[in-house]
């Protein structure tokens, strides 16, 4: 048995993505502590400079340092993404748990409401929500949260329905537990890992949505450093051959969100160890 080959090493995507996410969070927390950003400051003498040692990401069309604005923009994006994902998950878990725990006609009514929401394209619904308010972080979070709880609600409901038919629920009924106690003590703890995973998976999606809304000019106020705003502002100069105002903020959207997604994927594998063992064999 000594000549058995050692198991093939897989790329530790979980560790790499965790390091990337940690670096991102550290950057957006630490940089603003040391380097303040004046949103209004312009320096027309040094506009659209390509990347250099003094401006590693170059400068934008009014001479602002793109690295610093990207970090600040990432901070806004992460905040919006995380809060929106959290709120959406709370709504989705509550709705899904209600449908799954009650079952019967309550389940049918709730799920038809979910279908109704799903039938409207969610970017359109999100635009409708932000259009009702003054531009700002709050309406953007609200517009993402109210359009993204649907999949979580479906996941939680399905999980609850499958748990609900287990004999341990029968045992709890026979032991005198109320419906609420069964839902809170036996069913919800069983679906929370799934809901948590759904929340993390939603963070990148929410960040893209924030960027998309800002890009359309409907999200955050235009002077505020946000990745979507920056990509939107850089469109004109891209056609003139100035690639850096688009590329670097774009990378700041893509790399951290992919890292969060990869982290969630690694977590999902941990949730189902059987699948993990099949994959490593």
């Amino acid at each position: 048995m000594a000549d058995l080959a050692p198991p093939a090493r897989r790329l530790p995507t979980g560790a790499i993505s965790a390091a990337l996410v940690a670096a991102t969070v550290l950057a957006v927390v630490l940089v603003p502590l040391f380097v303040p950003l004046d949103e209004q400051a312009v320096d027309l003498g040094s506009k659209l400079r390509p990347p250099s040692w003094s401006h590693p990401f170059g400068t934008d069309e009014v001479g602002r340092d793109l690295l610093l604005r990207s970090v600040y923009g990432l901070r806004v994006s992460l905040l919006v993404g995380a809060v929106a994902a959290l709120v959406a998950t709370v709504i989705g878990t509550a709705v899904g748990a209600l449908a799954g725990a009650l079952g019967g006609w309550a389940d049918r009514v709730v799920m038809r409401v979910v279908d109704l929401f799903s039938s409207v394209p969610h970017l359109l619904l999100g635009i409708f929500v932000v259009a009702m308010f003054r531009p700002g972080v709050g309406p953007v979070i609200a517009s993402i949260a109210v359009t993204h709880w649907l999949s979580t609600a479906r996941i939680v409901r399905a999980e609850m329905l499958s748990l609900r038919s287990r004999p341990f629920v029968d045992a709890a009924v026979s032991g005198g537990s109320s419906r609420l106690r069964i839902a809170v003590r036996h069913l919800l703890p069983g679906v929370l890992p799934q809901a948590g995973l759904a929340a993390v998976l939603m963070v990148p999606h929410a960040i893209w949505h924030e960027s998309a809304l800002s890009f359309l000019g409907l999200g955050l106020p235009t002077h505020q450093a946000s990745l979507g705003n920056m990509v939107q502002a850089a469109r004109g100069s891209l056609l003139a051959g100035d690639w850096w105002p688009t590329l670097f903020p774009g990378l700041f959207i893509i790399v951290p969100t992919l890292a969060v997604a990869a982290l969630a994927a690694a977590w999902r594998e941990r949730l189902s160890p059987r699948r993990r063992s099949e994959l490593t064999l």
């Binding site: 287990r166 004999p167 341990f168 029968d170 045992a171 709890a172 003590r185």
Partner: peptide, 10 residues
């Protein structure tokens, strides 16, 4: 008391 203890215990 049910047949399968695994399924009938949280």
């Amino acid at each position: 008391v049910f047949q399968q203890p695994r399924m009938s215990a949280d």
